[in-house]
Computed example of a mutant assay.
Amino acid sequence: MSKEFLIIIIIVVIIVIYCIMAYNTLVKLKNRVKTNWAQIDVVLKRRADLIPNLVETVKGYASHEKETLENAIKARNTYVNAGTLQDQLVASNELNQALSRLMMLSEAYPDLKANVNFIELQKELTVTEDKITYARQFYNDSVNKYINKTEVFPSVIIAKLFGFKPFAYFEIQEVDKEVPKVKF
């Protein structure tokens, strides 16, 4: 065997080893994103399960707030039935807005604020919202690592070659970014 041929074989072996390692890294990062989304999904499902109880508690105090209650249930059902990750992200944002409007009803009904069931459900939702925040941070971090790996050279070649698709960040909608108006 000639020296040049041996060098070519070594270079090819190094490239193949790099390609295998890059592919495996991309698969691991993709799976981490999916796992972190599953964690968000678990917590969002928990929140969605709390909403019917909250609505039933509020119903007794705010029966004429039918539209707000129906919108909360509708948003919850939309989330539960969302099929794709993108649909779940959109439905989650709708659920956030409906839940905010539902929680604001307590301001109009002082008796509701004092209701033990409402207070407990409010505490559960607060804990759940904190968990969602942390899960969202982990998810977005894993999406960032995955996107970085699929966009930097030379792993971008492997990503394109094997069809690694980007994931969406879990972002809040523009309406949620607005500063709330407080009136005294």
Rank of each mutant, 00 (worst) to 15 (best):
F5C: 03
T150F: 06
N31K: 01
R136T: 04
N24W: 09
N148K: 15
G83Y: 00
Y61I: 12
A48R: 02
I11S: 00
S92K: 10
W37M: 10
V90G: 00
R46I: 01
I40S: 02
I11K: 00
N144Y: 04
S100F: 09
E120G: 08
K160T: 11
V55L: 06
V42Q: 12
D141M: 04
I51M: 02
N77L: 12
V116D: 15
V42Y: 04
I20E: 10
L99S: 15
V175D: 15
V58F: 09
V12T: 03
A108M: 12
V143I: 09
A22Y: 06
L105A: 13
K28A: 13
A114Q: 13
E70C: 00
F118K: 07
I73A: 02
F167I: 00
G60S: 15
M103G: 10
Y139H: 08
D87H: 04
G83P: 00
K3C: 00
K149P: 01
E65M: 02
L89W: 01
A82R: 05
T133I: 01
K177H: 09
T57G: 11
E171I: 08
F184I: 12
F164I: 12
L161Q: 15
F118S: 07
K74R: 14
K45G: 05
Q122A: 08
F170G: 03
F5W: 10
V90T: 11
T25H: 09
K165P: 01
P52M: 02
E124T: 08
E70P: 00
M104L: 15
I7S: 05
A38S: 15
K149W: 00
L44I: 04
S155D: 06
N31F: 00
A48V: 05
I40A: 02
K59I: 06
I172N: 10
I11L: 05
R76I: 10
R46P: 02
E56F: 05
C19H: 06
V55K: 08
E120C: 04
E4F: 14
A91S: 14
A75C: 11
Y146D: 08
V16H: 07
L69H: 04
N31C: 01
V80S: 09
L44S: 05
A22R: 07
P180M: 02
Q88F: 03
I17S: 14
L95F: 11
F170I: 05
P180S: 09
V58L: 08
V143Q: 07
K45P: 02
A75Y: 10
D87Y: 01
Y134V: 06
I147H: 15
E56M: 08
I15W: 01
G83V: 01
T128V: 07
Q97H: 14
N24M: 10
L29W: 05
L161S: 14
A98H: 15
E4V: 13
V182A: 10
T57Q: 12
F164G: 14
P154T: 06
L29P: 03
